[in-house]
Design a protein around this nucleic acid. Sequence first.
DNA 1: CAGGAACCTTGAACATCGTTCAAGAAAAAC
DNA 2: GTTTTTCTTGAACGATGTTCAAGGTTCCTG
Lengths: 202, 202
Amino acid sequence: MSKALERREKLRVDLILAAERMIAKRGLAGLKTRDLAREIGCANGAVYNLVADVDELILRAGSRTLRRLDEVLSAAEHAGEPSPQETLVRIAIAYCDFAAENLELWRALFEHRMEADKVLPDWSIDDQLQLFRHIYQPLAALFPKRSREELGITARSLFSAVHGMVALGLEQKLVAVPLPALRKEIAVLVRAMIDGLIARQS
Amino acid sequence: MSKALERREKLRVDLILAAERMIAKRGLAGLKTRDLAREIGCANGAVYNLVADVDELILRAGSRTLRRLDEVLSAAEHAGEPSPQETLVRIAIAYCDFAAENLELWRALFEHRMEADKVLPDWSIDDQLQLFRHIYQPLAALFPKRSREELGITARSLFSAVHGMVALGLEQKLVAVPLPALRKEIAVLVRAMIDGLIARQS
DNA sequence: CAGGAACCTTGAACATCGTTCAAGAAAAAC
DNA sequence: GTTTTTCTTGAACGATGTTCAAGGTTCCTG
């Protein structure tokens, strides 16, 4: 590979890492191209040689966040007792913990909105769909009679419900819930949802 | 009241209504002071005589949205069969419908973030806390042994879970869920949560 | 190795924001 | 009617994302 492209690639990686750090420290609204350029040592305009626009930059940083989240959920899936129910509880709490520890980066995943006419690139959509993967398998064990499609719906519902509790729980706008309390509430509700789903189907 | 103040008050109301319309049509990011000024017939700078900054404007529009939402939930609470369980389902679905019909205004409630050093005014916090009111009473009927505090926690958990399903369900970033399907999923999960919570406590 | 073509980088410039403010207009007070 | 206070205006300011022509750098070719 040519020397120029090498340098460009290194700069590109630097840029994305710098963007990630900046979002983590100052939130999505604190991401400024001029600051990024200064941080990686190039001109303001040069950012647009590395990346089409800030949207792409945010999506690339988001992709890294999603990958880290995926690892955390994967670890939660395969650690501890294998009971599907408790596995789902572990995954939910792992999601909560990840959001708390990576608050701004996690928020950026959902706060960011593209202009209506721009389309999400495929690699970004793929990243997001991976998340349901972890919760699909334990659910399949709990509901062996359900079709793949039904399980997908249940998985999305369950994930969304937990996401909502984390999102509103970590919001400081209202009364912020202490993290241990939130974890406990999540565990209670996940167990209740599973119990209820099992009871209703039989 | 003096004529000047009258005119000012009328302009203030116009401004907030115009902001509400603009958010509904173009989203929170499409709210521009210059457009608002043109719409209500005053200079750009005059907006700041009516309102401290756009943050306040967004909060005032949000307050109106919350009040309309409150009415919708209230109607759902007192209509139909009085079974607490089905009342909670009706409220959840009413929340979903309201979000779908007022998508951008509803999103603005949660997308908006103030700078860290500014504080939410009391009237805005009050508006938000009212929402839990509707779901508190049916829950109290279902769980007569729980303390006021425990019921508050359960209410927030339940509300948050439904909110998460609506939020991710209406998101277009991933696969958008058809509204009828979403309503059904919500009904299923709310019933399951309640069943599960009742089963676990006894 | 030389010279030209392709490409890259730069920083100034542009358009668009929210917000401020001095000056002029209008209203209120006396 | 004059003075004082208050309000309104629109130009100006500072940020910000993005573009672009000018100048450098790198790379290919003979």
